[in-house]
Design a binder for these strands. Structure first.
Length: 296
DNA sequence: ACTAATCGGTGGGATGGCAA
DNA sequence: TTGCCATCCCACCGATTAGT
C-alpha cells in the first residue's frame, strides 16, 4: 500500500492529524497561551524556543493545531496573508488545567475576534513581552501587576462597566456628564517597596488628535479624582502612548502639545520598543519633546 | 536479560503551496 | 508577485516494545 501524500489544510484541520506526544515544552507553550491569550508564531518562537530557528516552533505548532490543542487565525498585512496567531482550544485548555492547575476560564470567543482588534491585541502583547524582558534584566525592579483589556470581572456581563476590570467613571464638571476611562492595559512596577502606576494606550493609527486631546482630558479628570489609587499606592500615574512609528508618535505629540493633562503622558512607538529596552533607554518623549527613560 | 526494531521528537536545510 | 506556512529528506536521540 502506498501512503498518500496529502497536504494538511492551512485553514482547517486535517482528517488524519499527525501523531503527537505532548512534551513538557508543549505544556509550557499551552500555558503561555493561557497567560497571554494570543501569541504569534514569532512570539512563541522567541518565548518557548529561544535561540532556535522559527521552523522548529512552526512544526510543533502545526501538530498542536491539527490535534486540537490550539487554534489559529492569520493576521492580515496589506494584500498578503500575515503571521499565524495561536490561541488555546479546548483540549489545550484541559491540559493546562490538569497539569498546571491553570485557573483561567476557557474563552470560546477567541476565534471571533475582528482582524483590526486582533492586530491591536497583538501589539499590546508585544509591549507586555518587551516589558517583562526588560524587567527580568533589572535586579531591583519587579512587575507587580499587569491587567489587560481581557482581564474581565465577568465575561457574561453586557454593560461595559461590568465587563472590564480596568474601568472607572468620573464626573466631568464642564459638561456635567459622567465619562469613563478604560485603558488597553494597566501595570504597576515595584522597586524596594515603592510603586509606580502606568496605563498603556496602543494607538490604532486611526484616532484624530482631537480624540487624543479628549482622552488626555479624561485622564486629567481621572487624575484629580484619585480613583486610580486603588491599583497601587501612588499619588500619580503615567499614560504610555505607543504609536506604530516614530513619525506617528511625533505628529501626535506635536498636535496635542500644551493640552490639558499632557504632563501625565509619555510617547513612544512600536519600532523603537522592538529594538531598545523600554525601561532603561531614553525612548519616551514628554509633551514638551524631552527624551526620558522610565527607570534610571 | 539482552538486543533490535519502531516511533516520535528535535533540528538543519531545501522545496513546494497558498491566498490576495 | 510576496510573505508565510507545509512538507520532505536526512541524521541522531531516547523511550518503548517485540523477539530471542
Amino acid at each position: 500500500m502506498v501512503a498518500q501524500k496529502t497536504h494538511l489544510p492551512k485553514f482547517s484541520r486535517g482528517e488524519t492529524p499527525p501523531k503527537i506526544i505532548l512534551q513538557k515544552r508543549d505544556i509550557d507553550l499551552l500555558e503561555a497561551l493561557g497567560k497571554y491569550r494570543y501569541l504569534t508564531t514569532s512570539q512563541i518562537s522567541k518565548l518557548i524556543f529561544p535561540g532556535k530557528h522559527e521552523q522548529g516552533a512552526r512544526r510543533r505548532l502545526t501538530k498542536l493545531y491539527h490535534n486540537k490543542y490550539i487554534d489559529r487565525l492569520f493576521l492580515e498585512s496589506g494584500f498578503v496573508l500575515g503571521e499565524a496567531v495561536y490561541f488555546l482550544d479546548r483540549d489545550g485548555y484541559k491540559v493546562i488545567v490538569q497539569e498546571r492547575g491553570y485557573e483561567g476560564n476557557f474563552q470560546k470567543k477567541n476565534r471571533q475576534v475582528k482582524p483590526i482588534f486582533l492586530r491591536h491585541t497583538i501589539d499590546e502583547i508585544e509591549f507586555r513581552l518587551a516589558l517583562e524582558k526588560s524587567v527580568s534584566e533589572l535586579e531591583h525592579i519587579e512587575l507587580v501587576k499587569w491587567y489587560s483589556e481581557y482581564d474581565m470581572k465577568d465575561s457574561h456581563a453586557t454593560k461595559r462597566k461590568d465587563k472590564y476590570f480596568i474601568y472607572d467613571e468620573i464626573f466631568d464638571p464642564n459638561t456635567t456628564k459622567v465619562i469613563s476611562v478604560y485603558p488597553d492595559s494597566l501595570f504597576v512596577l515595584g522597586s524596594s517597596g515603592r510603586e509606580a502606576l502606568y496605563f498603556l494606550e496602543v494607538d490604532r493609527g486611526t484616532e484624530s488628535s482631537k480624540k487624543i486631546i479628549e482622552k488626555m482630558r479624561t485622564y486629567y479628570l481621572y487624575f484629580l479624582s484619585n480613583k486610580f489609587s486603588k491599583y497601587a499606592n501612588v499619588k500619580r500615574f503615567k499614560v504610555l502612548l505607543v504609536a506604530h512609528s516614530h513619525r506617528r508618535a511625533e505628529s501626535l505629540r506635536s498636535n496635542v502639545q500644551g493640552s490639558l493633562g499632557i504632563e501625565n503622558f509619555l510617547f513612544s512607538n512600536k519600532e523603537t520598543i522592538k529594538k531598545k529596552d523600554l525601561l532603561k533607554k531614553k525612548i519616551w518623549f514628554t509633551g514638551d519633546g524631552d527624551r526620558i527613560s522610565i527607570v534610571k
